[in-house]
């Protein structure tokens, strides 16, 4: 079975997201943990976001020119199911962060925000947004291949 426009678009978006944010979070969390090199600030968050938006525009314009951009009820159903899975990942991440904020300064092993820079919390939140998006892409690809 040949791949539809949606599947090609999903694979391209998933690859771009994993590459851009994988590289970015590797830089952020290795610096956060080992305190080396560039000190990341809140404004650094916008760099990968702008990069991924530009990449998405290039990918979508390239694919749209090659294939028909047509969606039907199966695409809508797969998209809804996948967004629900992504929502669960995001919810778990936000609740985890909220609970962590309650324990800031307690000094226990569960206090991962202790001694972290102020930019660590927004980066952690961005990480959960990205994980939710990756879950959404992977779930969609799974349903396109295995059925729904």
């Amino acid at each position: 079975m040949s791949m539809s426009y949606k599947e090609k678009s999903l694979i391209a978006s998933l690859s771009a997201t994993l590459l851009v944010f994988g590289w970015y979070f590797y830089q952020v969390f290795s610096n956060q943990m080992f305190n080396i090199g560039h000190e990341f600030t809140f404004n650094d968050i916008f760099r990968p976001i702008i990069l991924i938006v530009v990449l998405e525009i290039i990918i979508q314009s390239f694919l749209a020119g090659k294939d028909k951009n047509k969606e039907d009820e199966r695409d809508a159903l797969i998209e809804l199911t996948s967004y629900r899975n992504g929502y669960w990942v995001l919810s778990i991440g936000v609740w985890f962060l909220l609970i962590q904020l309650l324990y800031v300064g307690s000094g226990g092993w569960y206090d991962i925000l202790e001694n972290s820079s102020p930019a660590f919390i927004p980066h952690l939140l961005l990480l959960f947004f990205v994980l939710a998006e990756v879950t959404n892409f992977i779930t969609q690809l799974y349903h396109y291949r295995k059925g729904i």
């Binding site: 079975m1 969606e71 039907d72 009820e73 199966r74 396109y144 295995k146 059925g147 729904i148």
Partner: peptide
Amino acid sequence: VGVTRQTIFAIEKDKYSPSLEV
């Protein structure tokens, strides 16, 4: 029918149950 070829393929392979309309 007004769907994609991939949807017809999925229905044939029993990987998707179409709506009553389709």
